[in-house]
């Protein structure tokens, strides 16, 4: 199993380039939606005084920050600091109790449907149907998103994440790492401009972590904004260019990753 993963891991980057040459005219997995340039002036994410209360408990308090288009940000914090809730709010699955969130200049309260067409979410859970095959899952979600030629797109993405040979196997037979890669493919189906990833490395073995890291990096190089919720501080500092730290629902740190040491960040996360 590990050997197989490694092979695909090493080829992941090459595959994507290959695909573009192999299928002339077909949309590349990494092609970005044409609106990117048009919306380039508005930030990918703008959060203004956002509060979130769940079950009468304040989970997020007064979050104000911007993320530029094409940025790569890591969202750090202890368990329960509010990372997942923030990502769910950014993806319009839930609305802020107070304050305002804009994704590429659109308010999540009013323009949820438009925003959803421009973001991809990788959650704790795979958001896949375990009884369906990887290809069936991608075809299904692709058709829901009304993408042209979902079959071609699905195969391209499976190639991109290195799972073409398992395309017709049910997702429930996959290892955690493989499920995670299908999940990433699912999030990329509709060519989002912002990718929200909630602990995408959780439960993965080392080769899979490397594969997912590489996928995210590659997507970001191609111009996709990435917001990565993570708990591994060193890994985050290595991957991301911006670091956001949440502590008990408050944003306590928002600065470029280059200026920080892991100890600084850990100190901020744990501070009483």
């Amino acid at each position: 199993m590990t050997g197989q993963l490694r092979i695909q891991t090493d080829e992941a980057g090459g595959d994507a380039r290959e695909v573009r040459q192999r299928v002339p005219g077909a949309p590349s997995p990494l092609r970005l939606a044409p609106q990117v340039e048009a919306a380039a002036c508005s930030p990918a994410v703008r959060s203004l005084g956002v509060h979130k209360v769940i079950d009468d408990r304040p989970v997020l308090r007064d979050l104000t920050f911007d993320l530029a288009p094409g940025s790569y940000a890591a969202l750090l914090g202890a368990n329960g600091a509010g990372k997942t809730t923030l990502l769910r709010m950014l993806s319009t699955l839930t609305l802020p109790s107070r304050g305002r969130i804009e994704i590429f200049g659109r308010c999540t309260r009013k323009q949820g449907a438009l925003i959803r067409a421009g973001i991809g979410l990788i959650g704790h859970q795979s958001m896949l149907y375990r009884d369906l095959s990887a290809l069936e899952n991608l075809l299904f979600f692709g058709r829901l998103h009304d993408i042209p030629e979902p079959g071609v797109r699905a195969m391209d993405l499976l190639e991109f994440v290195g799972l073409v040979d398992r395309a017709n196997d049910p997702v429930k037979t996959f290892s955690r790492g493989m499920v995670q890669r299908v999940s990433i493919a699912r999030a990329l189906l509709h060519e989002p401009r912002l990718l929200l990833a909630d602990e995408p490395f959780a439960g993965l073995d080392a080769p899979s972590v490397a594969a997912v890291e590489r996928l995210l990096e590659q997507l970001n190089t191609e111009g996709m904004a990435v917001l990565l919720a993570n708990h591994d501080v060193r890994q985050s500092l290595r991957l991301a260019r911006t670091v956001l730290v949440l502590r008990r629902g408050r944003l306590v740190l928002d600065c470029p990753a280059g200026q920080l040491s892991a100890e600084d960040v850990l100190g901020e996360i744990d501070k009483r």
């Binding site: 067409a117 979410l121 959650g123 859970q125 149907y129 829901l144 998103h145």
Partner: peptide, 17 residues
């Protein structure tokens, strides 16, 4: 339960339907 398993429902809610 099919929708709740692995949160597939969130996938549906994220689609423009």
């Amino acid at each position: 339960a099919v929708e709740r398993y692995d949160e597939a429902l969130a996938g549906l809610l994220l689609a423009p339907i």
